[in-house]
Design a protein around this nucleic acid. Structure first.
Lengths: 235, 235
DNA sequence: CGACTGCCGACTGTCGACAGCTTTAAAAAC
DNA sequence: GTTTTTAAAGCTGTCGACAGTCGGCAGTCG
């Protein structure tokens, strides 16, 4: 395992060590400082971060439940490596959740929801113009979180949040998507239009198209066709 | 290097303490030995179970990710108390997942899948005749897990598994459902028929009906209309 | 030259302990 | 008798340590 990726101690200012470690690990994994399949040493991590092993272990379990790490008994934690099939499955599940959400949303589309979504699209467009890829992704996800929220089922939103961690991983695994800003904008405007029309069929078509585009980006964007991440650490 | 010819692993209890504690806690919560909203003391648990606090903490975090416990910083872990809205949300999400699954299943319905599902319904019917309520529920869930499995998206199945923990909680919260065995049987046979017909519309109708029945059972079965579990522990 | 065996280092699983925060309970003041 | 103050008890968050286990390496035997 590589030594500390980036000035780790700066991340820790005492309030809740578990969440801080989890946040640090999440960032490090998404930014590929830890490679897929790589083994994480609890001792090394605790040394690097200047904390004991207990919070590191609990944080690792947290990330395991989020699908970013997998644990092998008596072997330790490894960075999750997604293959093409798993990647397809993630997007299929996302489609499942968002189809359901947008259908519910048509049944209870409020002025408040409409305003919030429109505002978020504006923020997203602004972010798309900038250079900060991470922020663009976060604002994009936030738009979808808002949709799920206004769909009026918090458990649905929670399920989506469970997916977002893996989605970030998917997006991180492929190299920069550098899709055009106007593509992003129109893609989301279509969703707004469909919602405004109030037609379930139009909404479904819009969300299918929307996610289909994202999926295609990810699936064809990666390097290796079969395995997006290397597997076993070969020490 | 095959060791002894039959199941050597069965003799070796390689289950670590975390999983054992998690299993014990899950059982205790579902069987209402810990009431909803009740606070769980790490110290007390570790004393009772004869283990240290570390595995108890990690097990608690595991159950938190499964939605059986919730943690309040510096306060500890509490048994999750579901209110009516959350309960509706759980069943709505279940509907979302199973609709998607059964639609996928119609596209790839194999002889193997059909056989497995039919066999499971038989097992379920047999279980429904007995007195073991727990086993009946488990076999019922297993049928649905099989459906999800043969739908060909493991991530979808994983999402469902995440729900099953909460489903068991829902079912545990209401008093005995004591629904007639033949009701269970016909309800599942209808699903098999719809799948055999290969019609997506019929499948969707069947699954909507199926889950609708279960939902109605849970929603009307409970005692209090608003809060199914008591809230704050009052010691 | 290849395969097996025993040893060694590293690491995980688990434990007991300490510090700081929460809550409870008693004591004091009104 | 009620309210405020204060002390104590219990708890969680975190830490360092120990023991059992796993993977690798060298030495040995065929």
């Amino acid at each position: 395992m590589a030594l500390s990726p980036v000035a780790p101690k700066a991340f820790i200012h005492h309030q809740n060590l578990v969440e801080q470690v989890a946040g640090y690990l999440t960032q490090a994994i998404i930014q590929q400082h830890f490679l897929p399949g790589e083994r994480l040493s609890e001792v090394q991590l605790s040394r690097d971060l200047g904390v004991s092993r207990a919070p590191v272990r609990e944080a690792a379990r947290l990330l395991e439940s989020r699908g970013l790490l997998i644990s092998k008994p008596r072997r330790g934690f490894f960075v999750r490596a997604l293959n093409a099939v798993e990647l397809e499955d993630v997007f299929d599940l996302r489609l499942c959740l968002e189809r359901h959400a947008i259908q519910r949303l048509t049944e209870r589309y409020s002025v408040e929801a409409q305003r919030a979504l429109e505002q978020q699209v504006e923020i997203l467009c602004e972010a798309a113009l900038g250079n900060d890829e991470t922020r663009r992704i976060e604002e994009d996800l936030q738009f979808h979180r808002l949709m799920l929220h206004y769909a009026g089922n918090e458990r649905l939103l929670k399920a989506f949040d469970g997916l977002t961690h893996e989605l970030r991983l998917c997006i991180a695994l492929i190299t920069k998507t550098h899709d055009a800003p106007d593509t992003i904008a129109t893609s989301h405007f279509k969703l707004l239009e469909a919602l405004a029309s109030g037609s379930p069929a139009a909404c479904r078509e819009a969300i299918d198209y929307h996610i289909g585009v994202a999926r295609k980006f990810v699936v064809r964007g990666g390097g290796e066709p079969k395995e997006l991440g290397s597997q076993e650490s070969k020490r």
